[in-house]
């Protein structure tokens, strides 16, 4: 059907090619993981800054695999945080409200920063909670 309209045949997706750049990125992740295990100091690799083809990214994702934890943070668009098969190595994807990827990182840490609650927010929340506690029961029920 489609052939009749577009006499083009895609034998392979144009960019589905490994460039050889993924392996050095993996090496950097391994170095970060080692450092984290030794000193507790983690780090992150920003995948957007790397000349990776889509196939490279797929390869990295596949090689790192999936671990025990996954979380979705709904904050100005969905962000997903997934632990890889290697504890402490996280695959973090940030999306905007339109669902477009705005940042993609491999983070090496106990917990990715985005998950932790900020103390300012906690303070605001505590204030709101206190207000609820202080309010008359009827008001609270209403």
């Amino acid at each position: 059907m489609q052939d009749e309209v577009f006499p083009l045949r895609f034998e392979r997706a144009p960019a589905a090619v490994l460039t050889g750049n993924a392996r050095p990125v993996l090496a950097e992740v391994a170095a970060l993981a080692e450092r984290f295990a030794e000193s507790g100091a983690g780090g992150a690799v920003d995948l957007a800054a790397m000349p990776l083809s889509p196939a490279d990214v797929d390869w990295l994702r596949g090689t790192l695999g999936r671990g025990e934890v996954s979380a979705v943070i709904e904050a100005a668009g969905a962000s997903s945080v997934e632990e890889t098969a290697f504890a402490g190595v996280w695959w973090v994807t940030h999306r905007n409200p339109l669902g477009e990827v705005v940042a993609e990182l491999i983070e090496v840490a106990a917990v990715p920063a985005i998950i932790a609650a900020a103390r300012e927010d906690a303070a605001a929340g505590a204030a709101r909670l206190a207000a609820i506690v202080a309010a008359p029961a009827a008001e609270a029920l209403a």
Partner: peptide, 28 residues
């Protein structure tokens, strides 16, 4: 804060900015 934007959302926004500006991820 008035607009109800959480710190998480803002941190995420800044992470994306840092990535875009080719700054180290820690700059977010």
């Amino acid at each position: 804060a008035e607009a109800g934007v959480s710190r998480r959302a803002f941190l995420k926004f800044c992470t994306a900015l840092a990535s875009m500006m080719a700054l180290p991820p820690a700059a977010g």
